[in-house]
Design a protein around this nucleic acid. Sequence first.
DNA 1: GGGTGTGAAACTCTTCACAGCG
DNA 2: CGCTGTGAAGAGTTTCACACCC
Lengths: 198, 198
Amino acid sequence: MSTYLRVLGTEDMAEAPYTSSERLSRLTGFSAPQVRRDLACFGHFGRRGVGYPVKVLQSEIRSILGIDRDWKVCVVGVGNLGNALMRYAGFEERGFKVVAAFDASPAKVGLTVGGVKVEPVAGLSRRVREEGVQLAIISVPAEAAQEVLDQLVAGGVRAVLNFARRTLAAPEDVVISSVDLAVEIEYLSYALAGRGVR
Amino acid sequence: MSTYLRVLGTEDMAEAPYTSSERLSRLTGFSAPQVRRDLACFGHFGRRGVGYPVKVLQSEIRSILGIDRDWKVCVVGVGNLGNALMRYAGFEERGFKVVAAFDASPAKVGLTVGGVKVEPVAGLSRRVREEGVQLAIISVPAEAAQEVLDQLVAGGVRAVLNFARRTLAAPEDVVISSVDLAVEIEYLSYALAGRGVR
DNA sequence: GGGTGTGAAACTCTTCACAGCG
DNA sequence: CGCTGTGAAGAGTTTCACACCC
C-alpha cells in the first residue's frame, strides 16, 4: 500500500486522471494481478474498462494507512542513526512529527537536532505521556533497547520502530517493527558469495 | 541466518558449548521447528540428544553468509543517512569495510567521514572499479538513484543496498535490497489506526 | 531420555484465467 | 472493447508429529 501511494505521487501519474493495474505493475515491480488483488482487498476503487482514479486512490490509501492525520513521534537514542532519522524529511512529509528526543549521554542532552531539544532518558515514560507520543523510534545500543521499550510502553506508546539489533519483548497490543541493517547487508553478502563472487 | 548468528553471540550462549532449537527459539522469536528446519537446510550441524555446538554453528553461519571474509563497500550520497551509515560500527564488525564515499554536492566533496574522504560522484564507476568495490549503499534522493545504480553496475558492483524511495531497474545478476523507512513507519501507522488509536 | 531432522498436513500467498461491468 | 474483481489452481511456507540417533 505504501509503495502504491509512492508511485501514485510520481509525475507519470499526474497526466491522466486514471491509471491501470498494468501501469502500477511497471512502476512498483509487482505483478498486475497482485496489484488488483491488493487494491481490491480494501475496497472497490477501480472502474472496469477505465482503471483506478489517481486522486481518489491516493486519498483512500492515505486513509487506510492512517496517514490522513498527524502522528506524534519520539526518537530515543540520538547517535549517528538517531540524528539522521530526526532530520529525515520523509517522516514529516507523511505526517510523522518528531515532538521529542531522548538520550542517555549528558553530552547529547540539551542539543537541538532538527528543531527538537534532546532530553535525558530518565524522564522518558513521563515525558512521552505528557507529549502524547503515539509512536517511538528506538536507535539505542542493543543492551539498552529492552529497558527503553519498557519505559515507552509504560508511557503509553503502542507502536515502535526498532533499529536496535535485539529481539524485543512487549505486550500483545504493542506493534513493533524492526529494521536490522546488518541483516540487510548480510543478505547481500550471502547472495554474492552464492554467485561465486570473491 | 543473520539473526541466529546474532543471538549466538549473546552472553547466554557463552556458558555452555551446546545450545538447542528450543533456546534459539526463545532468543529469536521463531518457533523451534522453524529453527531446526532453517539450520538443517544448510547442513547437519546438530547432534541428536545434544543440540547445536555454538562455536561450530557460528563459524558455519559466517561461512554461509559470506562474512568469513572482508567486503569492500562504498556509500553514495553522504547526507544525513549516508553519514550515519558510514559511521555505523555494525558494518565494520561484520567485515564490511567502507573504502569510498561519493556525493554530488561540492560542499560534501573533500570532507572526511569515518576516515574516508568524500569524492565527486562524477568519477563513480571508474573509482569503484579501481578500488574493487563489491557492494554499494545508495543513500541519495530518489531522483538520482537510478543514475547512480547504472554507474555502479558499470563499475562492476553486483550488490546494492538501496535507501532511496524508488523502484530500481538493474540486470538480472545484480542483487538489490531496498530499505524504505517510510514503508516501515507507515506500517506502524496502519496498525495503530486499525486498532482504533486516535 | 533428549533433541535433531524430516515427511506429511495445513496454511498462506501468488498466479492464472476469465467472468462481468462500465 | 478494456480493465477490474475474483474463484480456482499452483507454489511456497509454516506447523506438526514422530522416527531416529546420540
